[in-house]
Amino acid sequence: MPLVEIANLSLSFAGLRALSNVSFAVETGEIIGLIGPNGAGKSTLLNCISRIYMPDHGTIRFQDRDLNSRTASEVAAEGIRRTFQNLELFREATVRENVALGLIYRYRTSLLAELFALPSARDNQRGALKEADQIVAEMGLSEWANVLVAELPYGSQKLVELARAMAGHPKLLLLDEPAAGMNREESRRVAETVRRLRDHKGITVLLIEHDMRVVMTVCDRIVVLDHGEKIAEGTPAEIRRSPAVVKAYLGDA
């Protein structure tokens, strides 16, 4: 049984087709690349999975359950975590706090315990911060733990966002252009990190990326979108040879 099953997904904005009858499946432990020219509907697809958008037609099943009736926060709590193309960080908070906010939903006590600062609530707060510190360290961000994220360079902000997503113990990780704006060395490191997360933690990854080097080295399979439609799907080698893909890319250039 695939981890994610997308069937006949369609969505249009003000009459403009953003996604049209897209179907594909993601197996547990796979790294799937989502590529296509600008405006192909890649981010829209990710937004449908994380329930920021409601599709007009079609279904998304995760662990064999329908996602359409759930809210964004429920989907996140079930183990679908993500990063954003244009960064959606808590800008007025520190790195540590950003990561902590990614996991506090797992540390719940009753509201009354929180309001009266009962021991259970305080233990919870300590526990959450401790776990956040661990993740901050794992991602090599300890040096910046108490710095406001807005003050970090762009590349490090992307890393914080990834750390925050990791804080949710994701089963499925959605990465929207993780290597955008990075130099060759940095993108290579991103690719390595993604690999490592899959190999060591068994996380399934669906990533959008324009950097073909990253996509071709890291992905097991690739899905190609163009004008909201799926035009190809296959291994990196197959995609490289696909005439439809070549046409979509060259036709645009």
């Binding site: 994380s50 920021i52 809210t71 964004a72 926060s73 996140a76 709590a77 975590r81 993500r82 954003f84 959606e88 960080l89 808590f90 800008r91 007025e92 908070a93 706090e97 902590a100 906010l101 990614g102 996991l103 506090i104 939903y105 797992r106 540390y107 719940r108 006590t109 509201l111 929180e114 609530a121 919870n124 707060q125 959450a128 925050r164 804080a167 949710g168």
Partner: peptide, 20 residues
């Protein structure tokens, strides 16, 4: 945690919701 979740929603409701 409730209070900080609330402030997270104020800073970015999309990001907060995607944090569960």
């Amino acid at each position: 945690h409730s209070g900080r979740s609330l402030m997270a929603l104020k800073m970015s409701s999309v990001a907060a919701e995607c944090c569960g």
